[in-house]
Design a protein around this nucleic acid. Structure first.
Lengths: 168, 168
DNA sequence: AACAGGTATTACACCTGTAAAATGTTTGAC
DNA sequence: GTCAAACATTTTACAGGTGTAATACCTGTT
């Protein structure tokens, strides 16, 4: 059993204040740290395609729902602010990866869809991304992966119940 | 068993392209989503104390190592760029939470330590933070928490081995 | 017709990282 | 021994992305 960073951080806290109940760090600290490392690693292949992770998430949302989405829906779907979506859409539109179309009845709303190039890009990038992720997870055995996925799902349900309703 | 967001995203991808091996999303997607929700939730109590999470991490690093750290060490410890550390230090110093001291021998390096107020702030905030985290995790039973922590540790060791050596 | 509410965009402030600059130290050739 | 070049540490300059709040525009209701 080799130590990870969080274990050594926990040890430091214990040394400095043994009263501290550091239990939650063992889970939450690790989640945060894993997420940080993963993002850093996954950004690389995306960046070589000239995309931000946020941009890729946006394209992926349109691709997987398989229909036109409004900017508002995209903001909710990707958990970012409307302003950020507007800015990303402009950039992606300038690169001919998405198209905007005004609604016929309600001229406030717009509809966003992928161009053929946008769709092709997602379909090329996503399998690469998944293959990379699979290689990272290969260090865990299959039952361990299932176990981890299902525990994370339990936790995520808790978090969504507590905070997930709150959009912005 | 109630569904989380990731489960529904995976279903969407499968509907659109059944060939896709979406297995990794069940873990990595959940980690990213948990981290996002947690950060959003944890920022609130910190913000009410006038601190960014990054600033709190910096203060915590100095507190738990229990000695003076150089800006460079702080950058490595908190996984952020040197420039970001410089800027945070200035802000924290302006608020009298940390102090800078020049090294006697090597006049390039500086040493950072907490003021009494800085130390008191961390010691007040951290238990609050941990109590909140404990309440979030209370939805999982104890064996489930242990299981989750140890699986995450395995994964984190993998990630660190693959990417962790690369600082900046 | 005015108003309340919804949708998207714009304006602004802030934080971050990369790269360049400023400052200081060490090494190695002569 | 001394000086220049290489290296190390921190800070500054700049560019880019994000969110909040204000704005523009539109719809439906009374």
């Amino acid at each position: 059993m080799t130590d990870d960073i969080v274990a050594s951080v926990v040890r430091q806290w214990q040394a400095v204040n043994p009263e501290l109940d550091t239990g939650p760090m063992e889970i939450i600290g690790r989640i945060n740290r894993c997420a940080a490392l993963l993002q850093q690693a996954e950004d690389a292949p995306l960046r070589s395609a000239g995309l931000t992770r946020a941009e890729f998430d946006l394209l992926g949302a349109v691709r997987r729902t398989d229909r036109e989405l409004t900017p508002g829906e995209l903001a909710r779907e990707t958990f970012s602010s409307g302003a950020a979506v507007t800015k990303r859409l402009r950039a992606l539109q300038d690169r001919a990866l998405v198209e905007r179309r005004g609604d016929d009845r309600d001229r406030r709303v717009a509809h966003v869809r992928l161009t053929d190039e946008g769709r092709a890009l997602v379909d090329r990038l996503l399998p690469e991304q998944l293959a990379y992720e699979r290689s990272v997870l290969a260090g865990l055995d299959l039952p361990g992966r299932d176990e981890l996925a299902s525990r994370l799902s339990e936790l995520l349900v808790q978090l969504e119940g507590r905070l997930g309703g709150a959009r912005r």
